[in-house]
């Protein structure tokens, strides 16, 4: 077990970070918001932590909290103008948000280090911390999913006009979804900068957006298992497909097309749905046999 851990530690850590970013992306999609702003939130969180940790004496624990809070606040603010937009327009607006953040990071050289980024961030995060934080995030997501808020999100995703006719305040729940997405993105962005001890704006560009989207699309957009399955595939795939290492991006592209075309719910969601259907079928069978027994008695 320990040997396995040491051999695959970088992959495990990569997997855990991907799961975290995946939840940030998932919660927005889950509420029916076509946001791809997770890259921007992650950049905010990681730069906030990196700058505070290298230039001030703020305790590390506090820097992560501040980074999370900053990204959450920006997420909430971003939701206000986005409330007027839907679909493709939301995707474009969040893409513009990410580009603005990136170009400001590149521009503010004295503060952010420009294109070279920030180096020498204390390496305070290891696999166990990542594991604990992913666990906590899952616990929060699990509770959101089971609560009224989760049901509102599901309703918003499936049919917004119905949700609104049932008295759901759409704007309010979109803001909540953005705040959660921002907080989770900022949190894992901060952890990432404390893990890789070196960050640059380039890390949070188009490739980051695509990777996070891939995790959620492969895994699934509604269940807790989704991002885990997606990140697992993304972590294991390069190991299996070693001969295709040069074409890794192309392989990712092929998988994206195949999954979205033939398995639109994602691998993780399909597994969960299969178990749910089986459970329902069993319950129905059970009820039918009970009814039969009752009929036989009377």
């Amino acid at each position: 077990m320990i040997q396995f851990y040491y051999a695959y530690q970088p992959i495990i850590d990569f997997f855990l970070l991907s799961v975290g970013f995946g939840y940030s992306q998932q919660i927005a999609l889950r509420a029916g918001v076509f946001s791809i702003a997770t890259a921007g939130f992650a950049a905010l969180g990681s730069y906030c932590v990196a700058i505070l940790a290298t230039k001030t004496g703020v305790p590390i624990f506090l820097t992560v909290i501040l980074g999370t809070a900053l990204a959450a606040a920006v997420g909430g603010l971003l939701a206000l103008p986005l409330a007027r937009l839907r679909g493709a327009f939301q995707a474009i607006a969040t893409l513009a948000f990410v580009q603005i953040i990136l170009s400001l990071l590149l521009y503010g050289e004295g503060f952010t280090g420009g294109a070279l980024g920030i180096v020498g961030i204390p390496r305070e995060v290891n696999t166990w911390i990542l594991l604990i934080v992913v666990g906590l995030t899952m616990y929060v997501m699990w509770n959101i999913g089971r609560s009224g808020m989760g049901r509102v999100f599901n309703a918003l995703r499936q049919e917004e006009s119905v949700a609104s006719s049932l008295g759901v305040n759409i704007g309010k729940y979109h803001i909540i979804a953005f705040i959660i997405s921002g907080a989770v993105g900022g949190l894992f962005g901060g952890l990432q900068s404390l893990y890789t001890f070196q960050i640059e704006p380039h890390n949070y560009g188009f490739a980051f957006i695509v990777n996070v989207l891939t995790v959620v699309i492969l895994g699934g957009r509604t269940t807790l298992l989704g991002p885990i399955m997606g990140a697992l595939i993304m972590a294991i795939l390069p190991e299996i497909a070693r001969p295709l290492a040069e074409y890794r991006q192309a392989v990712n592209g092929v998988i994206l097309i195949l999954v979205i075309t033939f398995l639109p719910n994602g691998v993780g969601d399909e597994i969960v749905f299969w178990f749910r259907r089986r459970k329902q079928a069993r319950q129905q069978q059970h009820r039918a046999s009970e009814k039969e027994a009752r009929d036989a008695v009377s």
Binding site: V210, L213, I217, Q249, A250, G253
Partner: peptide, 9 residues
């Protein structure tokens, strides 16, 4: 998503 896939390829 699928057009991003084509882009990657």
């Amino acid at each position: 998503v699928s057009s991003i896939g084509v882009d990657l390829i």
